[in-house]
Amino acid sequence: MDLFLTQLLNGLVYSVLLFLVSAGLALIFGLLGIVNLAHGSFFMLGGFVALSVTAATGSFWLAMLLAPIPVMAVAGLIEVVFLRRLYARSQLDQVLLTFGLSFILTDVTETIWGKGLSSLQEPQGLREGVSILGNVFPAYRLALLAFGFICAFAIWLVLERTRAGSMVRAGVDDARTAMGIGLNVPALRTATFAIGGGLAALAGVVAGPLLGVFSGIDVEVLIPAFIVVAIGGLGSLRGALIGSLVIGFADTLGKAYIPGVSMFLIYFAMIGILLVRPYGLFGQDPAGG
């Protein structure tokens, strides 16, 4: 029972990380129509910047606060300089561009920080276990869980209950009409890309103590995040949430109980769901039919 509870917790924690990455990915696809292959790079960059911040200040909290900022700047710059010129072009061009950018970001990261596997230290006070109903859980994972729920709630609140959020939703539903009634969709796109990148970076920071910070984690995170949005439906935030839970649990429980096939489980899940619902659980057919 104890082991099972631990696995459940691990599954939830992995789901939280996936959600932070895939929420941005889904929003970016929804508003910008872009499959962002550089999204894993934002995650990786967040982790590396956090390493530098903790090395300089010794504070994990400060790293959480500061690390997303330069990543958001980089993401915003990418949108303004490159992506903005590509909205009228085919999806292939956008995919290739972000793929190329991910190479450049990897090289830049390796030049600044090196390749090495380094691990972020959990913040002081969250390094011990917490005993609940006779079971001991690692405090950091519990805190991460709480943090994930707060983030998900905050994202929901901003999107559903604020003016900026309703503008983003309008842009996702119909960018042309949104522009027609005077919404500044280009600025919304820049902001969405930057904030999506920032969320991925934040995920990279909080994942640091669990997964480590190294070059190559970008692809390791990108692929499951893609599977999450494919399952949930491209452009759907609710889909990203459900998809994160499906993949988070499938992967964690698979590794614990059926290690032989666990590596394939998430792919099988995706293929199975896409066979039944080709546009994902909450996705809509772009052709409208």
């Binding site: 561009l97 190329g100 990897t106």
Partner: peptide, 10 residues
């Protein structure tokens, strides 16, 4: 490689 990608697309 990254720059070739970007230049090619742009």
């Amino acid at each position: 490689v990254g720059c070739i990608f970007v230049a090619c697309v742009m």
